[in-house]
């Protein structure tokens, strides 16, 4: 069978999805499957990644049939399952610190390590948004970050100071100099 999308290559990935009883089947070549996933062509139905990581371990040829319902039931116990997680295709990327792939994170409901939040940021985002809304952290900061942000703030003030001196705006320059002094103290 030829790939439904490019109609050139042999289809070697079979994806079946079931969203609230709405069943779709896709016969794709691995290239189109990867492209569609990367471009987000599967749309909102596939807004949650998992599934294909499982295929990657099997060389992705003749991938097994995946039923959306099975996925949903296995994910219900995790925070990732609470909004109808559906299988889709991923590149099989693994976290460089703990080796977790996204599938294992989705299945367990637990992230692998702190670094996973950086490496899988985009794919974790919908879950985090679902749990917490469009919020950004406010409250206590860890020491390292406080130090980092302090440093970047002083750097930016120093830039402004140079600018002010260049423009002969000495009043502003004095103000900035005092601020920097206070921060570095």
């Amino acid at each position: 069978m030829l790939c439904e999308k490019c109609k050139k290559n042999e289809a070697n990935a079979y994806i079946k999805t079931n969203v609230n009883g709405d069943v779709h089947e896709y016969h794709l070549c691995s290239q189109c499957a990867a492209e569609m996933q990367n471009s987000g062509e599967f749309g909102s139905m596939f807004n949650f990644s998992s599934g294909f990581d499982a295929f990657s371990g099997m060389n992705s040829l003749f991938a097994p049939v995946m039923s959306g319902f099975d996925m949903v039931s296995s994910l219900l116990s995790s925070p990732f399952g609470s909004f109808g997680a559906m299988p889709t295709l991923t590149s099989g990327k693994r976290c460089s610190v703990c080796g977790s792939d996204f599938r294992s994170i989705a299945d367990s409901g637990k992230v692998g390590c702190p670094n996973c939040y950086t490496e899988f940021r985009g794919r974790l985002a919908p879950t985090i948004k679902k749990l917490h809304g469009n919020s950004a952290h406010c409250g206590k900061h860890s020491k390292v970050t406080t130090q980092e942000s302090k440093e970047s703030e002083t750097a930016s003030l120093k830039k402004q100071l140079a600018e002010a001196v260049k423009n002969e705006n000495y009043e502003l320059a004095a103000e900035l100099r005092d601020k920097i002094k206070a921060m570095e103290a």
Binding site: K110, G139, K140
Partner: peptide, 8 residues
């Protein structure tokens, strides 16, 4: 470990 506790 669980995203439910992110933030504070």
């Amino acid at each position: 470990a669980c995203p439910t506790n992110l933030g504070t």
